[in-house]
Design a protein around this nucleic acid. Sequence first.
DNA 1: TTGTACGCGTTATCAA
DNA 2: TTGATAACGCGTACAA
Lengths: 346, 346
Amino acid sequence: MKRKITLKQIARELDVSISTVSKALRNSNEISEDTRQKVQAFAKLYNYRPNNIALSLKNRKTKTIGIIIPEIVHHFFSKVIRGIELVANKRGYNVIVGLSNESFSKEVINMEMLANGSIDGFILSISKETLQQQDYHHFTETINQGMPIVMFDRVVNEIQCDKVIVDDLNGSKKAVFKLIEKGCKNIAIITTKDYVSVGKLRTQGYLEALEEKQIKAKGSLILKVDDALVSDDHLEVLEKDIETLFTANKNIDGVFAVNEIYAITAMKVARKLNLRVPEDVQFIGFTDGVLSKHATPTLTTVSQHAQQMGEKAADLLIDNLEIEEEEEHYQTVVIETELIERDSTK
Amino acid sequence: MKRKITLKQIARELDVSISTVSKALRNSNEISEDTRQKVQAFAKLYNYRPNNIALSLKNRKTKTIGIIIPEIVHHFFSKVIRGIELVANKRGYNVIVGLSNESFSKEVINMEMLANGSIDGFILSISKETLQQQDYHHFTETINQGMPIVMFDRVVNEIQCDKVIVDDLNGSKKAVFKLIEKGCKNIAIITTKDYVSVGKLRTQGYLEALEEKQIKAKGSLILKVDDALVSDDHLEVLEKDIETLFTANKNIDGVFAVNEIYAITAMKVARKLNLRVPEDVQFIGFTDGVLSKHATPTLTTVSQHAQQMGEKAADLLIDNLEIEEEEEHYQTVVIETELIERDSTK
DNA sequence: TTGTACGCGTTATCAA
DNA sequence: TTGATAACGCGTACAA
């Protein structure tokens, strides 16, 4: 078991100084052809590689990006990570992942751990608990320490930083317009409580779309599900809520759901109630997930281009990291959505 | 924008030496109550935190685990990561993620990047290309350098290290036994090419189960799908293959698929051919995914306990890292599978 | 009780 | 052409 070799060891072995070795390896022309070759041969033989940690300490940059997300077992977030990793790797960065598990304290702890030198900047999506408590001091503090942050998807106006967001509003409008165009008269929405910014925006899009088409929104057609319900255990509660929605509003002929699970579950409930999809009720979801593609019938969805979001976020962060100019002018990049029509609409 | 404060700055500010500050902060009783308090107050005020990189360099350990997986947009792998992250965090470690994207060279490059000091050890699952080429030099080299590796799921006998695997063989047998028990006489298997170790094992389990029940395996009932087909674009090809399987073998009354996509797709094809599930054909998949739960009908599956695998892998690695004893006796932990019965079986 | 010196591995500057 | 030295930030053995 040969430990990794260091400059010092090479120097001792070859009876030259450390700095000579260092220079020789970097092809400095201060060094004679002779020793250069000797050193390089030796280094190659022992497979010398500079120690990243030492380089990080010296250069005061780690070439590592910290990602903080609420949950990794989630198509959207894992696709974003893939995008980040893709760009990061291409530009010579590594990626270190912290999960907040939707918890404020875990988010804070994770960020503090990473902010102490381990990374050069953050890409993150805010946890639900943080959004509820509206306590953003950990973000401002890290930014004040000179560590850049790029937020994606779940962002917040209070914090000044680069952001990458989905065009939730227009995405929803597209979906609702499509339902109207397909002949729906009574369109329900299944959404989340308002403190989840994306849920709020998507609800707003639904309302605006209806208004623009001179359709009066009805409170009874708006189902705001408690977030805990996304967890698998509460699927039955979700189903019951949706069933109530349908039975209380027999005339529903279109459903817009702000995520995949809601949409799939709603279709399931509809089928159970002997409603035909899409003949009796049409469905559109909002997601980048895998369920839609394999559902029965396949689900029409608003795609978010998650991977592209990740790529953009990584590019923004690395640009920020590598460009000297101190003038801070943050940008918010909006990733357009795309309506993917499948069999749950006519 | 105040940069992170260092010991040196505190020392200068308070007009004491660096080591005094260091000791004071670590509550050394060499330091007078007086200066200790003074230093601690100042440090707290400026929110001093030791620099991780400096600590890593000094201690020669980074408290960071490197994960290399073929793909992150995959329920199984993201669940494993969640398990790793959970344990790692609990034990004071961070997690850095590299994606091989099923490519040999990306796997090698990623490992080399991380092995140069960035991490203390690896947890990985081997890429398909590596398995095909059977070139494992990068694993042996990192192990020889004294950096421990824990492999999970896609492992390989040639490498001596800790391993966490699913009991693929028995998992498959359980599934096939269940189908037989439920009255299936002609059970087909949809599996991968043999170089994917888990596919091979699951096929073997299928064969053994049949043999134990004195049922003769028929080659025509074994569909070995090309791996590229898992990618979304090739779904149609997959469907066609499965359709051929069904039409060429009208008597199929049970299907065991080695992953979720195969199973779901097969159910879809069956429905298209007007076969009722589970009345005419019963299905069992192999997975920890989200599709099974939301499929129509819901899919009976062999669950792999992915998160538990991640937790175990992390514990193994960290144990290895923190325990002094040099005697290497590697273990292979087998995670038992669990048959989750849903509506695709009677 | 406090401070000096050293080492972790590297590179850059300056001296020889 | 080569080498000594300092610095990145920290902790600690040893000296004062």
